[in-house]
Structure formats: structure tokens, C-alpha cells
């Protein structure tokens, strides 16, 4: 793929710095949990969260996204490198009206380390723009377990990973278009690859429970005094019946 060389070039500055970082002691028995709140870039209008668990070289990841352009693919990756951080959303980029393009913020989040493709899709950096295999709605929940290298697993567990979701409809046309082409793939509009959401995967402080909490015993809407109420109702009905009967007789 023609864009892979560009990505590889992007990756170089990040890789130079990496060997200097001592690999952290990864993963006790439960592995390492990480979480990120995804903030919007380029006024994408979106929001989201990411939750990851690193266990050995397996990375389980759940990404929830809301409010991006619907009906369009959203490439999403774990970036590693640079300052291991998200850029200032106000930074001046090289895109339309100063929009931030993916390479503009490489100093912040480095290069693609893992491509968060759908099940079946390849997950290496070479598949960063495998558009057919990324979520293609504006609101979605993504979940997948991905095998990564020991180095990448250690870096993510150390809190160096940054989740970036791409695809911004700058001009509000409802589709990826516009005259400027992507800095990653000249065959795509820059809207298709500009970053929309970014969040730093921070090491969690607990083993987060799954889902909600079942702290309800029973409904308060039931009848706690149903015996009273039933008895009362029967008594009242008997009374009404008796009165009706009497009236009838009186009339008769």
C-alpha cells in the first residue's frame, strides 16, 4: 500500500526514542488496566471513552464513541511515541482553516502502533488506513482483543498509548470531501484521516467491574400492604353490593 511508507516515515522519530525507555514490569496476575476519555479535536462534535486491559501480549480494548460523522469510516489506532499525549485542540494545523491533520500532531502522539480494525482486520501499523475494516458509523462500541509485540504491550501498560479516532467532516457536507487531500494517503480527502478524537490511555487505579451494579432488592412499586388493600377492596365491594341490593328492593 502506498501510504504505508509514509506511515513508516512517521514512525521513525518515535522509534528512535523508544529503546531508551526501560520496559516497565508488566502485568501482575490480573494484567494492567488502562482508561482514556476521548476528547474532541477539530471540533468534531464527538466524544468517547476507551478501556484497555493488557495481559501478556494480549490487549483487550473497548472503545465507545458518540457523535462523529455517520455513515463514514473512522480509522482508529493506538499511537505510541512523541510526548505520549494528545495535542492541544486549539493548535494551528495545516488542514482547512488551520485544522489539525494527523501528521501535525505527531510530536504529541507519535506514530501508529496498533490499528484498531474490526474482527478479521489486520492490526499492524501497515493497516492504519484499512478503511473497509473500521467502524463506519458516527456512534459505535468497538471491542476486540489484539495480539501485540512484547514491546508494544509493555509500552501500553506503561501508559504510553494514545487512542486516536480519525475522520472529521470539516465543512459539514455529510461526507468526506473537500479539495485538500490527506497527508497520509493522497487518494483520500484530508477529512477522512484528520483526527476527530484523542485520549491518553492512563494506568487505572483498580480492576474496574463490568457494567452496572445490581443494588436493587425489589421494586417499591409493588403493594407492600396488599393484604390490607385486598381485604379493604372486598369489604367495600360487599358494601356496595349490599347497598345496591337494598335500593333495588326498596324500588321494587
Amino acid at each position: 500500500m502506498k501510504f504505508s511508507t509514509r506511515l513508516a516515515a512517521m514512525a521513525v522519530p518515535g522509534l528512535v526514542a523508544l529503546p531508551l525507555l526501560a520496559a516497565p514490569a508488566v502485568a501482575d496476575d490480573h494484567g494492567t488496566e488502562l482508561m482514556a476519555t476521548l476528547g474532541e479535536l477539530n471540533d468534531s462534535g464527538g466524544s468517547g471513552t476507551a478501556w484497555a486491559k493488557v495481559d501478556g501480549t494480549s490487549v483487550w480494548l473497548s472503545v465507545e464513541v458518540q457523535g462523529l460523522l455517520d455513515g463514514a469510516p473512522h480509522a482508529q489506532h493506538i499511537h505510541i511515541g512523541g510526548a505520549n499525549s494528545c495535542p492541544d485542540p486549539m493548535m494551528e494545523g495545516t488542514g482547512p482553516d488551520g485544522a489539525i491533520r494527523t501528521t501535525d500532531a505527531a510530536d504529541s502522539y507519535g506514530a501508529v502502533a496498533v490499528s484498531l480494525t474490526n474482527d478479521g482486520g489486520m492490526t499492524g501499523p501497515d493497516h492504519a488506513l484499512d478503511v473497509a475494516n473500521f467502524p463506519a458509523t458516527g456512534t459505535y462500541t468497538y471491542e476486540r482483543t489484539i495480539e501485540v509485540s512484547e514491546e508494544v504491550a509493555a509500552q501500553i501498560a506503561d501508559g504510553q498509548g494514545v487512542v486516536v479516532v480519525h475522520g472529521v467532516d470539516h465543512d459539514g457536507s455529510g461526507a468526506y470531501d473537500g479539495e485538500q487531500m490527506s497527508d497520509l494517503d493522497p487518494s483520500l480527502p484530508t477529512e477522512a484521516t484528520d483526527p476527530a478524537l484523542c485520549g491518553e490511555l492512563a494506568v487505572g487505579q483498580m480492576d474496574a467491574p463490568s457494567g452496572g451494579v445490581q443494588t436493587g432488592g425489589a421494586s417499591t412499586e409493588g403493594m407492600e400492604y396488599s393484604g390490607f388493600a385486598m381485604g379493604g377492596a372486598v369489604l367495600a365491594a360487599a358494601g356496595i353490593g349490599g347497598l345496591l341490593l337494598r335500593n333495588r328492593r326498596a324500588e321494587g
Binding site: 417499591t220 388493600a229 381485604g231 379493604g232 377492596a233 372486598v234 369489604l235 367495600a236 358494601g239 341490593l245
Partner: peptide, 25 residues
């Protein structure tokens, strides 16, 4: 002849009490 009236009053009273004793949401 008074029995139906007494029944009615008592019954309604019980229903009202039962409803008022419900635990609110």
C-alpha cells in the same frame, strides 16, 4: 340495613391506608 354502609366505609378506609403506606420511589 347498616351493614353494607359499614362495609363500604371500612373497606375504603383500608384501601386508602394501604395505598398511603406504600414506600415511595
Amino acid at each position: 340495613g347498616l351493614l353494607p354502609v359499614v362495609c363500604l366505609v371500612l373497606g375504603v378506609l383500608l384501601v386508602v391506608v394501604a395505598i398511603n403506606r406504600q414506600v415511595p420511589d
